[in-house]
Amino acid sequence: MKRHYWTSPIAIYLFLGGLGGGIMFLAWIMSAFVFAGQADVLGPALAGPMFIALLCLALGCFFLVFELGQPPVFWRVFTTATAIIKWGATMLSIAMFFNLFYVLAYVPWFPVFENFFMPFRAFNLGVAGIMGLGIMIYTGVMLSTLKAHSFWATPALPILFTTSATSTGCAAISLSLGVWPGSVHMTMASYLGAVAIHEVLHVVDIVLVFVEIGILLIMVLSFLGSGTRTAKRAAKRWVSGAYAGWFWIGMIGFGLVIPLCMYLSGVSAMSNGVAPVLVLCGGLLLRYLCVWTDDRQPLPGEERYYNKLPKSDAQFLHAWEDGDLY
């Protein structure tokens, strides 16, 4: 392997994109299905999470653009129609617009917006929610279509990412539910609604974390057992190699099992406050580990070749830069 072409910004972007998508998707599900007909009550309670989601997507997009080789011309992404990454960008844009429209309906200081957007909020939330689902899936699909990378090119990856995104979405909503500056809209009913949502999400997240542990272990262990040589090598790095500590203690332990135990121990400060934070950290760690596991099947001798090349700080690379010396 030459080097990692995609680094931290992409990992953060995948995490934030998934997180934002997860929040929007769950918000929509809660509002449209689980607590159908109570949009008026729940709407303001979901404004906080939705705003967080908007921030996540915006920040994610910033990192995505930052990672580009030529950020000033990021708009070129919209010039062709077929590529997966273009679909992702489109969904992100739509989601952000409709999320913004939704949030604007609850901005307390500008009644103009409120009056204008309030009638469409269900529609806006619907579009944002569907786009959110799309984004969650897309973050996994984007990697899994790159079949040069054995660890990415598996259908399990989009499922894992979607599960993880939803799970982190749950956690983020739990943390931000009902937090919204404009108390105008927040009635007692809204708070009660928030508590109801919280209870539902508590259960949902237990399920999701369970599922995520399952998918993650199945994926990694099946790579280890029956993957290609490259996938095996990557999986080995997770299970017993350089990433083992991050994987077992960080991701499985603190990111999934410990919060799961906290969730299962019933509603408490731990399960309300600490567990969601751990889930969020676990989600970020998952994206990091996945992005760093960009192993490509090496050509014969490729590693030997690139290992011999100089590091970018090699002295000769920076010598004689003062122009003509003698």
Binding site: A319, W320, E321, D322, G323, D324, L325, Y326
Partner: peptide, 10 residues
Amino acid sequence: HHPARINHAL
């Protein structure tokens, strides 16, 4: 055109 070439008698 190497910048370290000797271009003048020293």
